[in-house]
């Protein structure tokens, strides 16, 4: 059986002892950054999917609220470009307000507006100002809330936040690369005598590089596995306890199977990146020798 080369006593290097810790910590941070990016991306998509193409009309509380509500529904139903009109039930309103007002909302006897959802036909543009004027004529005080404007801002914010998270992940991986470059160069300096002997005996650069790579593969693999397990555990905790604590204030924070798969690939990618970096670093340094 071919024995792996161990001509370089790399396991005794003080610098390489920190590789598992460094790679582990960086993979942990990268896992969290990627997961946050996924959360934000998914949340933005959910908001966009659930609210695009809809209008919400609020009929204020008052003695004529029921009559005004009927007039508004009639007017909306006959407005070109509106496909469906639905009054949001009191129970649904109570559910929506529960995070702010608690579950005893019905006993508070608050003056609640009536909410009406109107679904706009796909590709049809509604003149919101004209519609507001017409609604005000039949039901004074009525407010038309178009989701598109704030939804666009919200989704833009989610995209920016997700991009920042992914950028943080890339920076974290770059930090890992720089750390490994430094560690490898230190190892080459420590073992320069042995490296020169191997070189003069006829070892190719790839032979020497492979020894560094095998050593780093093992250390980085341990670190990446630990960092990934810790990161995954942290995400699970956030999913379980975050949903309880946010009490509906935050969007659903669960990852899809594909997203979990990508998170599992992250440590593999990190180790491959680190090992490739080691190989390139060793070959570059050795390239300066004859």
């Amino acid at each position: 059986m071919m024995r792996p080369p161990r001509d370089l006593p790399l396991s005794n290097d003080p610098a390489s002892r920190y590789i598992p810790w460094t790679v582990g910590l960086l993979v942990f941070l990268a896992t969290l950054s990627l997961a946050i990016g996924f959360f934000l991306s998914s949340a933005g998509e959910n908001w966009r999917r659930s609210l695009s193409g809809t209008l919400t009309i609020q009929v204020p509380a008052g003695p004529d609220q029921q009559a005004f509500t009927g007039s508004v529904i009639d007017l909306l139903s006959t407005t070109p470009g509106i496909d469906a009109v639905r009054r949001i039930t009191d129970d649904e309103v109570a559910t929506m307000l529960e995070p702010w007002l608690g579950d005893e909302i019905s006993t508070l006897d608050l003056p609640m507006p009536v909410l009406i959802d109107a679904t706009v036909r796909r590709g049809h543009a509604i003149d919101i100002e004209a519609l507001s004027t017409r609604l005000m004529a039949v039901a004074p005080g009525t407010v038309v809330d178009e989701h598109a404007v704030w939804l666009r801002r919200l989704t833009d914010l989610a995209v920016i936040a997700a991009t920042v998270s992914l950028s943080v992940m890339v920076l974290v991986l770059l930090s890992a690369v720089m750390t490994v470059v430094f560690t490898t160069r230190t190892g080459l300096a420590i073992h320069s005598d042995i490296v020169e002997v191997l070189h003069l005996i006829g070892a190719k650069d790839s032979y020497i590089a492979r020894q560094f790579q095998i050593h780093t593969l093992w250390l980085a693999g341990i670190g990446a596995a630990c960092g990934s397990v810790l990161g995954g555990s942290a995400i699970l905790l956030i999913e379980v306890y975050g949903a309880r604590l946010s009490n509906g204030l935050l969007p659903d924070i669960t990852l899809s199977g594909i997203q979990w798969g990508l998170l599992c690939l992250l440590p593999v990618a990190a180790v491959l990146l680190v090992v490739a970096t080691v190989g390139i670093t060793v070959k570059r340094v050795l390239g300066r020798m004859m």
């Binding site: 003069l200 005996i201 006829g202 190719k204 004859m290």
Partner: peptide
């Protein structure tokens, strides 16, 4: 460079 290694293998030191 890659052939230098092969030449070195023909030289014992």
């Amino acid at each position: 460079r890659v052939e230098l290694a092969a030449l070195r293998r023909r030289i014992g030191v």
